[in-house]
Design a protein around this nucleic acid. Structure first.
Length: 275
DNA sequence: AGCTCAACCTGCTGGC
DNA sequence: TGCCAGCAGGTTGAGC
């Protein structure tokens, strides 16, 4: 589920409950995430207050009195704030219990997620931690534009869709939004990235911003099971123009949407509208 | 340096 | 109804 809009939606949902809250304790029911949760994590966070909440790429950063928490939702993770005494369901792997008797509960069936305590502040982690330091600009920030994409693509030959999904180029453009953005920009996903000119990249950058903004506004994309912090689904799925619409008519020209794999990922496009 | 591919998991869907 | 293959929103790291 989570692409950048889903992570942003989650951040906005949990912020009111977490900001300034004191963490009573951490209950880990299953430490086996993509990287196992280290056993000492619980004692590191107990008793600390939450000083800040932020997002970098699809990572959530929670600044504490001492150090910070780095959370990633992987492919199937979600976070909800629930009463601390409510019964955990299957795949509810941990509870961050707050002093007000609520808890932040992590649910992640595929366990591709990440939950790590880091000794440094969120700011230092962003610039120094191996998982964060090499990341490209935020797609909704001022450092991202068509000129950036054009510059980085000159020496590369990969398909533009792979280029867009490379976190060193720009973060937060996952498979759904890469497909949607390329459709809206009229660019074929398999086109070599160095064979696209500056004007088309400027258009593409604008479209990426627009798609991500619209999705955040609608609370993220619910495919199978994404729920916001409050348990509601996101509503962006109904706005998808090509993703998952193989064989259905293109919304612009009526030609059937094609599907093929590009770089291991399913890609959806209209041969008539995208070149 | 740049790229491809496998791996980490469970759950859902569609075909037989 | 059941079984099984194939596929899924992400990211890392090995190896060419």
């Amino acid at each position: 589920m989570p692409e950048l809009p889903e992570v942003e939606t989650t951040l906005r949902g949990i912020r009111p409950y977490l900001d300034g809250a004191r963490i009573e304790r951490l209950i880990v029911r299953d430490p086996r995430l993509r990287r196992p949760i280290p056993p000492e994590t619980a004692e590191r966070v107990a008793g600390q207050a939450v000083r800040s909440l932020s997002r970098r790429s699809k990572y959530l950063l929670i600044g504490l009195d001492q150090g910070s928490l780095l959370i990633h939702l992987g492919m199937s993770g979600s976070l909800r704030v629930v009463p601390a005494d409510s019964a955990p369901k299957k795949h509810d792997h941990l509870d961050l219990v707050l002093a007000d008797r609520r808890c932040l509960r992590l649910h992640d069936p595929r366990r591709f997620g990440l939950f790590l305590w880091l000794p440094e502040t969120p700011e230092l982690a962003e610039s120094r931690h191996p998982l964060l330091r090499g990341l490209g600009p935020e797609p909704l920030g001022s450092a991202f534009d068509g000129d950036h994409l054009h510059r980085l693509s000159r020496e590369r030959r990969v398909a533009v869709k792979i280029f867009l999904m490379d976190a060193a180029v720009v973060v937060g453009v996952g498979n759904i939004y890469a497909n949607e953005s390329l459709f809206l920009a009229g660019i074929h996903p398999a086109r070599a990235c160095h064979r696209i000119g500056l004007e088309r990249y400027r258009r593409l950058a604008e479209v990426i911003r627009g798609v991500l903004d619209a999705s955040i506004t609608q609370g993220g994309t619910t495919l199978r099971d994404f729920v916001q912090e409050n348990g509601n689904p996101g509503y962006f799925a109904q706005s998808l123009r090509v993703y998952g619409r193989t064989g259905e008519p293109c919304v612009a020209c009526g030609a059937p949407i094609r599907q093929r794999r590009i770089g291991q990922r399913s890609s959806f496009y209209c041969v008539h509208c995208q070149h």
